[in-house]
Design a binder for these strands. Structure first.
Lengths: 258, 258
DNA sequence: ATTCACGGTTTACGCCGTTCACTGGTAATA
DNA sequence: TATTACCAGTGAACGGCGTAAACCGTGAAT
């Protein structure tokens, strides 16, 4: 009661951390298929069954890794958002909200390309069968990740209400779902409840647009056409800022992305 | 020389076919991870090593399956395109070219949702490490698949030259790549060489847009917001037809997608 | 009639996730 | 302090995986 964590618990938590770090190393260096219990244990000078003291199964370990990575990505994006928010607006680069969103989207792409294995784990083909209850592990971090983009989006809306479809222009079934979605998200954030359903639609449009561009590039599915898609991504960005009622000049790519 | 296939070769080809069909059944019924040599052999009343008489490795079998599926998808799309081309234009549904493209995109989505396992194999996280030379197996079918969309696109352009970015508006590096891409595709199809680079950019924009929308939905990555994304997809379509200089009214979804 | 190639089997190797019985040391208890 | 209880870790084992090698029977070609 007095001490929330006993000494034992602390060393235990440290081991859990070490396991996940080892797993992470394997993931980034040898890809997702190298993420085996035996490899992790081997790397740590242990045997595979020992890991069962810390994780109930291989899948749960992977899911917790996914949750961690979601957290990292979330804070990386938040950091970029904060620094972009503090940087004074440069001339001709659109409103502050747009600048921030553009910076965050760029960071998202950069992160995806720098961490393709992790990106595949988070956003690629879903792990295993439909909607296990194991999703509980990754659901919350996934939602807080989504909230980064959504927070920026609502902030932008508060300062500059761009054009969105009127509610009666939206298919009734879709409208209901968008309202449910909005009410879902607005738990704890009353500002969201103010958003019109049309804005929710624009948000999803932006997100699918971004997802498509980044995923195609990260998975190499654009290689058949482009070696370096960074300039292409700038078009994606200006398109997205277009939805948001702002223009953002695609910057010329000075050098090919490393 | 006279007989291109001996009797032996024919029965052999039939067996190859049977193996792939069995594999396909396993894939659709139990997902990609059930696609094992032993399971396929078991299903056929054989032993796993026997399959090595027909395929050099598990991966090659999978790749050939992927190639087959690409072929199926391609002809499914072509069939829809043909039937849409023959159907008389209904009032207020835009130009014929747009109608066809919209029909093909809808079919692409429908196919993806009806064949999520196969879709994951074709368009999900890429199999194994970077750019093996095994890609040779899937490259050609992948390209002919792409050519379906690209053919419709060039056809549309021939009849109705929608607005595209001028060459000097496009980042130099991107322009070069787009030209290379166009010249790649125009081998055997001289009409393509006529396309401005801006059109290539629009094409890629459309394709990434479509890919993003369909992939997110097929992978369940939209579930956090929408149960049924069919109405949302109609917005995607009207957006795409917008790039193509045409408007297409999003049709109201009469019933939730099965 | 003999040879030979082919399609299949069995066996085996080294991976994998997972279970279980066991052990040594450490912490809490009597 | 002596004993107990726990707990991290081990080793062996099960079934499944891809794959390699040796082997074998049948049917076609010589």
């Amino acid at each position: 009661m007095s001490h929330p964590l006993s000494r034992r618990d602390r060393v235990r938590a440290a081991t859990v951390q070490e396991i996940k770090q080892t797993a992470r190393g394997l993931l980034v260096e040898q890809g997702p298929e190298a993420l085996t219990l035996r490899a992790i244990a081997r790397e740590m000078g242990m045997t595979a069954p020992a890991l069962y003291r810390y994780f109930d199964s291989h899948e749960i370990l992977v899911r917790q890794l996914v949750a961690d990575i979601f957290g990292e990505l979330t804070s990386a994006l938040r950091a970029v958002a904060d620094s972009a928010a503090q940087r004074p607006a440069t001339s001709g680069s659109g409103s502050k909200g747009t600048v921030i969103i553009v910076a965050v989207c760029r960071e998202f792409r950069r992160w995806a390309l720098d961490h393709t294995a992790e990106y595949a784990l988070l956003f690629g083909t879903p792990i295993r069968g439909r909607r296990d209850r194991l999703d509980e592990i990754t659901d919350r971090p996934g939602r807080t990740f989504a909230r980064v983009f959504f927070g920026l989006f609502t902030e932008l809306w508060r300062h500059h209400q761009f054009a969105v479809p009127a509610p009666d222009e939206i298919d009734a079934g879709l409208r209901d779902q968008l309202e449910r979605f909005r009410d879902d998200l607005s738990a704890g954030l009353p500002a969201i409840a103010e958003l019109p359903v049309g804005a929710m639609l624009i948000f999803l449009r932006c997100w699918t647009r971004l997802y498509g561009a980044v995923t195609m590039e990260a998975f190499g599915h654009l290689k058949f056409a482009l070696d370096d898609a960074s300039a292409m991504f700038e078009y994606t960005l200006s398109e997205m800022t277009g939805w948001l009622g702002m223009t953002y000049p695609p910057r010329q790519s000075s050098a090919p992305a490393g």
